[in-house]
């Protein structure tokens, strides 16, 4: 197994730039590589991947592999799995880090199946065990009610998909030196079985959830799509947007893309107003990064009060309308 060496990051490119998660992975990857006394490498794929290689070195990569093929510009599960598994069998990284992104969530488990490695999905912490030198990945289990530390003693590569915005971005240092290796192997398009024929971007009213500074989030207790209008009114007033729990999305009151939580979006606004939602851990993990959480719930025992900074035990229908009035008064003195 000692023939497997080094930490490799699977890079992602968005709009011609290194994706934020890639810079985060280079940061934590650098730390792991230092702990092992091994190299940190990055794989970049895409028609114009080469122009980003220098920058990746500045972010801490010792080596950047560049696979310049415009077929990689759009993610395809079949080609990526095939090509990256071949590449890993040649380069033999001991650790392979992937973002817990649209691409990573689809690719990592399949790549793991092909490479027969050991994968932990949605890792929120990574470290090297000082005695065994194994990668230890911490990941949520039971919907975030608990966490497990996972290791892979026998299988290689040791893989993890890493949650976004958990690790700080790597610091850039343009004086760093590194090696750029261009990989000539092309992908064989004839292996494609599953083809993406259309992509539909959901148009958001106002700010995106991930960028919002204020989120008014509603749960099953809201009761109807119409009642959600009240949440929208407050959100608009505060320059924010509306999120929801899975139960509210299930009911069709709110588009599914507004779901917050473990299987939805992870947000970290300044203010998160949680209205008529119980605070299941699988929901909470999506908003724990908020600076301030306000809970409005008629059940004083609701779990949301265990994580909120401010709490109001009341029927939201009585509180929200006056709250909107008070904010209006405060905004226009």
């Amino acid at each position: 197994m000692s023939e497997y060496k080094g930490v490799m990051v699977l890079g992602e490119i968005t709009e011609g730039k290194l994706a934020p998660i890639t810079i985060e992975l280079l940061g934590i990857g650098r730390r792991l590589a230092n702990d092992l006394g091994e190299e940190l490498s990055l794989l970049l794929m895409g028609g114009k991947a080469g122009v980003l290689a220098r920058e990746a070195i500045a972010y801490g990569a010792n080596k950047v592999y560049v696979a310049e093929d415009s077929l990689f510009d759009e993610y395809n599960s079949d080609t990526y799995t095939q090509w990256i598994s071949n590449f890993c069998q040649k380069t033999m990284p001991s650790i392979l880090l992937i973002g817990h992104t649209d691409i990573g969530c689809d690719l990592a488990p399949r790549l793991n199946g092909r490479l027969r490695g050991g994968l932990a999905m949605d890792a929120v912490n990574l470290s090297i065990d000082p005695s065994t030198k194994l990668l230890v990945s911490t990941r949520p289990i039971f919907g975030g009610n608990a966490y497990a530390k996972v290791v892979s003693r026998f299988a290689r590569p040791q893989m993890a998909t890493v949650r976004t915005k958990i690790f700080p971005p790597a610091e850039r240092d343009d004086s760093r030196q590194g090696e750029i290796v261009s990989v000539a192997e092309k992908v064989d398009p004839s292996i494609i079985k599953a083809k993406v024929i259309d992509r539909i971007k959901e148009e958001f009213e106002g700010v995106k959830l991930e960028d919002a500074e204020v989120i008014v989030s509603g749960g099953h207790g809201i009761g109807s799509a119409k009642n959600f209008e009240l949440l929208w009114e407050l959100a608009r007033l505060l320059g924010g947007t509306v999120g929801a729990t899975r139960r509210a999305c299930d009911e069709g009151w709110v588009p599914v893309t507004r779901q917050i939580g473990q299987s939805g979006k992870v947000v970290s606004p300044k203010l998160y107003i949680a209205v008529a939602l119980s605070g299941a851990m699988s929901h909470i993990v999506g908003c724990l990064g908020s600076k301030c959480i306000v809970a409005i719930n008629k059940d004083p025992e609701a779990n949301i009060f265990n994580v909120a900074h401010f709490g109001i035990v009341a029927d939201y229908k009585e509180v929200l309308p006056v709250l909107i009035e008070k904010f209006k008064e405060q905004r226009s003195p």
Partner: peptide, 20 residues
């Protein structure tokens, strides 16, 4: 086995909710 669980834990969180 490809992966093993070496530890499980429940994160402790201090309740700090101020009731309005």
């Amino acid at each position: 086995v490809h992966t093993e669980i070496t530890e499980i834990f429940i994160p402790t969180r201090e309740r700090k909710c101020e009731m309005i």
